[in-house]
Write a protein that binds this DNA or RNA. Sequence first.
DNA 1: GCAAAAGTGTTGCTGTTACACCCATGG
DNA 2: CCATGGGTGTAACAGCAACACTTTTGC
Lengths: 242, 242
Amino acid sequence: MADVDVPPGYEPREYPPFAVTVDLVVLTVQDDRLVVLLVERGERPLGLALPGGFVRPDEDLVDAARRELREEAGLSAPGHLEQLGTYGAPARDPRMRVVTVAYLVLAPDLPAPVAGTDARAARWVPVDSFGQGQRDTVPPLAFDHDEIVRDGVERARSKLEYTPLGAAFCPREFTVAELRRVYETVWGRTLDPRNFHRKVTGTAGFLTPTGRTTTRDGGRPAQLYRVGSLVTLYPPMLRQGA
Amino acid sequence: MADVDVPPGYEPREYPPFAVTVDLVVLTVQDDRLVVLLVERGERPLGLALPGGFVRPDEDLVDAARRELREEAGLSAPGHLEQLGTYGAPARDPRMRVVTVAYLVLAPDLPAPVAGTDARAARWVPVDSFGQGQRDTVPPLAFDHDEIVRDGVERARSKLEYTPLGAAFCPREFTVAELRRVYETVWGRTLDPRNFHRKVTGTAGFLTPTGRTTTRDGGRPAQLYRVGSLVTLYPPMLRQGA
DNA sequence: GCAAAAGTGTTGCTGTTACACCCATGG
DNA sequence: CCATGGGTGTAACAGCAACACTTTTGC
């Protein structure tokens, strides 16, 4: 209740200074698995962590996220970027007081390796490894990044229910089946191909037909689509039910 | 790309210092209107603003939110508190670089006046005043607080769809009709009393019957309920549809 | 009794599920 | 021709909207 409690308007430096960072939960679908981008830290605390870094003095938070995405993940045009949440427990970073604003990025599977201009090694890691249970393959992440990854995955799962954001995981042009496999991977369940097709093609604004077709998935040629103008899906597509 | 870009691990003070605040969007229902708590600022920039204040050096963000809620709103047991989002545009505060973490609070209509221990005058203001249209009654809020209020209201509206959080606006024991009026007020539409009753009483875990009844709403005595253990409502209750 | 509000029954609509079936390609 | 996946038709079912109707109080 001391001087930190007086109303704002005095000398800036009277208020406790914090470091502010952005961290990125970059998700994509690779080989029918939902994976998150992690980087190997060169400093203490060592280990794997989310890509991210300090916000600059005159930089907006979302701009910092976009910059880190470019610098650390080599991504300049993600499918989708949104704020996920802010994590600021006093001891979350052992070195100093850091408040981090986490951003969620949904990206298509990239043909080019995500090396980034940054020297740090980047890895895609399946998110199954972050459940409460088995942590066979991946050691715990640095800081509170395990929690942030879990929150990001849950956000992605629920966003697919009521937005057309599944397409953010797809290339610019994609088939209904490719989109369906994204949903199946993210939700960890199978969906009826016929009903899924009807749902997404029958909802006005979800998909924009290109008129072209492809046979890259085998079988009968499939229509190619781009994302439509729809923002929220009503009624939503629910992940449970079967 | 200068020194702010080196990996973490050096002197804390090499990183740009930010002030971090929490701001509160406290919503309640009064006289069939959804209202938000605002405080009159005594400092520049003058005008109405959200209650809030600086996070202390060793304080968790949510603890800061709870403390400000107690100090500035006189509320110690809100119905619900959750993180809303973080706002950090470089010029959002003309005095210094401030990143604020906004929290959303849903509170029952309080019999006691919300004065708070703080000296600042607190007012409840209908949120209709924050639409794109008419701003007859209320001048624009300080900083970016108009935007934060809009985001909070939208979050509250959608939360009522898929959680039982409408009860957070009600006293500890309430009738189905009282709960319905909360939904009607927050969503700005009428709901069929009979279908609403069936929905909330028929969903296991939504309500806990107390066994008691009341006639405070007139007419036939109504059962009194408390909130149940349910956390997410499946299937959701959708605000549109009629 | 009458007004008011609680609560139940019922019907039709909307949207989903499950699955039979046909279409168009590569081999 | 056959395997593979794309796409349509359809019937059973679930949940919801609309609304007639009964119940229980205050006045």
